[in-house]
C-alpha cells in the first residue's frame, strides 16, 4: 500500500511537471486518467491535494509563504470531501454485503415456486414470473391431485420487494399445509384467508385467483380473492372475455365467502391468469389498456403456451424500456386441440 502510494505520488509529480512544461491537452488528458487511478487506489481528496502541494514546493522552492499556507487552508476545506468520500466507500461495501444477502434470499425464494409445470396430456401450460427487483411479491403454484385435476394459483402480495417476499413465504406454507384432498377453489380461499387474516399486519393483504381444471370433463372451476381479472379465450368465437371472480382480498375479514365460477373449456380455448404487474405496465403514454394486452396475446395465440407468455412478456418489457415497475406474472392454460 505504502509503495503504490508513493508510486502514485511520483506519477502525479511527473505528469504535473510535464504539463507545466508543455501546457497542452495531452497533459490535461493525463490528469483526467490520473483521477481514475486515485479513485481506484482509494486515495482521498485531501491526499491528492497534498500531492500537489509537495510537487509545487519541489518545483518552486521560492514559493511565497502565504501561497503555501493557502494550501493548508484548502486542505482543511477538502477534509469534508475526504470524510464524505470514505463514508461513501463504507456505504458501498455495506451495499455489496446487502446485495449478497438479498441474492441468497432471492435464490431461497425461487425454491418456493414450482420447479416444473405439470405435464397433462390434454393441457398446454405456459408460465412466466419475473420480479421487478430481486425478490418477488408474485406467487404461483400448481397442484395435481389424485384425480389428475390440476390446481393453479396465482397470487399478488401487496407491495413488492423484500416485504412482499416475506409475506409470500407465509402463503407458500399455508398452501402446503392445506388438507391433502382436493379442495374446491372457494373453500381453499376461505382456508387461506383465515391464515392470512391472523398473520398479517393491518395494512397488508394478498389477492389470489385459484382455479381447478378437471381434464376428464374439461371444466375449469375458479374463485378469486380481489385478484386482477384474467382472460378467457374462446376459439370457436375467437373472442377474449374477462375472467373475473368477485371476492374480497385475503387478510381483511376472517369469515369471507368466495363464490365459485365455472367454465366449460372447449378444445383450443385457453385461460389467462395474470398479476397486476401485467396490466399496470406503464409506458410513456400511460398505462397499457387491457385491450392492448388482448391484442398482444392474440398476436401470438397460435404458438405454444410457454412461447406466448414469453413473447408477451418481452413485448411489454420492451414497451417499458426494460424496466419493470412491478412484479410480472402471466400464466396460460390451454386445452389442446
Amino acid at each position: 500500500m505504502t509503495d503504490s502510494f508513493s508510486c502514485i505520488q511520483n506519477q502525479y509529480k511527473e505528469i504535473l511537471k510535464q504539463y507545466l512544461e508543455d501546457k497542452n491537452e495531452i497533459g490535461l488528458y493525463q490528469a483526467q486518467q490520473f483521477s481514475k487511478k486515485v479513485l481506484e487506489h482509494q486515495i482521498s481528496p485531501e491526499e491528492t491535494l497534498s500531492f500537489h502541494l509537495d510537487a509545487i514546493e519541489e518545483f518552486f522552492p521560492d514559493i511565497p509563504h502565504s501561497l503555501r499556507d493557502s494550501f493548508d487552508f484548502l486542505l482543511e476545506v477538502m477534509m469534508g470531501y475526504g470524510m464524505a468520500y470514505r463514508a461513501h466507500q463504507s456505504l458501498r461495501d455495506k451495499q455489496k454485503e446487502l446485495e449478497a444477502e438479498i441474492n441468497v434470499a432471492a435464490s431461497m425464494q425461487q425454491t418456493f415456486l414450482p420447479e416444473e409445470i405439470p405435464q397433462v396430456d390434454s393441457l398446454d401450460i405456459g408460465v412466466i414470473s419475473v420480479p421487478a427487483s430481486k425478490m418477488s411479491g408474485d406467487y404461483y403454484h400448481f397442484i395435481r391431485d389424485e384425480n389428475d385435476c390440476i390446481g393453479v394459483a396465482i397470487a399478488d402480495i401487496i407491495g413488492k420487494g423484500i416485504p412482499a417476499a416475506l409475506c409470500m413465504s407465509m402463503i407458500k406454507y399455508a398452501m402446503d399445509s392445506l388438507p391433502e384432498q382436493r379442495l374446491q377453489p372457494g373453500a381453499l380461499l376461505e382456508n387461506l384467508n383465515r391464515v392470512v387474516e391472523q398473520n398479517v399486519a393491518s395494512n397488508m393483504f394478498i389477492t389470489m385467483m385459484y382455479g381447478s381444471y378437471d381434464p376428464h370433463v374439461h371444466h375449469f372451476y375458479y374463485s378469486g380473492a380481489g385478484h386482477e381479472p384474467g382472460f378467457y379465450y374462446s376459439q370457436k368465437e375467437d373472442t377474449f372475455e374477462e375472467l373475473y371472480a368477485k371476492g374480497l382480498v385475503l387478510g381483511i375479514k376472517r369469515h369471507t365467502k368466495f363464490r365459485e365460477y365455472h367454465k366449460q373449456v372447449e378444445p383450443g380455448d385457453f385461460v389467462v391468469l395474470l398479476s397486476d404487474g401485467v396490466t399496470e405496465c406503464r409506458t410513456e403514454e400511460g398505462f397499457i389498456e387491457r385491450e392492448e394486452l388482448i391484442e398482444l396475446i392474440r398476436k401470438y395465440k397460435e404458438l405454444p403456451a410457454q412461447e406466448i407468455v414469453e413473447k408477451v412478456f418481452y413485448e411489454l418489457e420492451r414497451l417499458q424500456d426494460f424496466q419493470l415497475r412491478d412484479d410480472f406474472s402471466l400464466i396460460i392454460l390451454r386445452r389442446k386441440v
Partner: peptide, 11 residues
Amino acid sequence: IDSTGLGIFIG
C-alpha cells in the same frame, strides 16, 4: 393508487 396505497385505506 397501487396496492400499497390500498393497504393504507385498509389499515
